[in-house]
Design a binder for these strands. Structure first.
Lengths: 127, 127
DNA sequence: TTCCTCCCTGGAGTGCACTCCAGGTCAAGT
DNA sequence: ACTTGACCTGGAGTGCACTCCAGGGAGGAA
């Protein structure tokens, strides 16, 4: 229950301490992370869980602006679940679209790779 | 064989004219696009095909720097096919890693969506 | 006491990939 | 002849998401 330092949190989350401070300043967290008597941040379990979700949203391409909007909704408390759901569903659609697009392009690139492999195979066979 | 204007090329490729000029200036194309007597760019089929590949590489997250490196190799002519192949294969690995990561995070987000849907369903049932 | 380490804040700086702009040219339409 | 519209060049500006820095404080080791 004591909470961990920013370095430990950064390490566990795979983010930099700077990024953690930046997220907090930018309103992506649900609360200002509590400080020790000497003013150092001390991250509780709940903070780390929330930031994990933030990293998931970011890693799937959600812009900072939208993460903040979502954080604002959650911070506002119960009663706006429909809005939260809509935001997540919209993001889900974006991600699926993106996955499909990347997969399609990758197919074309794979094809090109196949051609090079074939060419090089022939070259080495005739050498 | 006549070639198309930058506006037509941009339209066909889904890029802006500015981006097309930027790619050319930045060395992402195989050659300076030929100009008409009045100095306007005129894109040949081969130019469009190459730029299509560039958009595929970009859309799958390859940085401009690497696209340029690849363009440099192709421009250098035959004999460096292994290097080209290595570059594309490395990119392919990056993309696959990225797809796996996004898919995994999406799963967690989907789970969260499921919880909201369940909550809202119950709410509306009890209303 | 002095040093070291970790952390703080506010703000400036960075890298990337465009995007926009000013000032100008050219060919075609009226 | 004049205007319009598409295009040219070089270079400045933009948005995003960090990342770095200066100057300073608190607590513990030697």
């Amino acid at each position: 229950m004591t909470g961990v330092s920013i370095a430990a949190a950064a390490d566990e989350l795979g983010l930099s301490a700077d990024t953690l401070r930046y997220y907090e300043k930018d309103g992506l967290l649900l609360r200002a992370v509590p400080r020790t008597s000497s003013g150092h941040r001390t991250y509780a379990e709940a903070d780390l869980r929330w930031i994990t979700l933030v990293t998931r949203l970011r890693a799937t391409g959600m812009p900072i602006r939208d993460v903040r909007r979502y954080a604002d909704l959650v911070r506002a408390g119960e009663g706006n679940e429909e809005e939260r759901l809509a935001l997540l569903q919209a993001h889900r659609e974006d991600v699926l679209r993106q996955l499909a697009e990347v997969t399609a392009h990758l197919g074309a690139i794979d094809h090109k790779i196949g051609i090079y492999e074939h060419t090089l195979e022939k070259l080495s066979a005739s050498a």
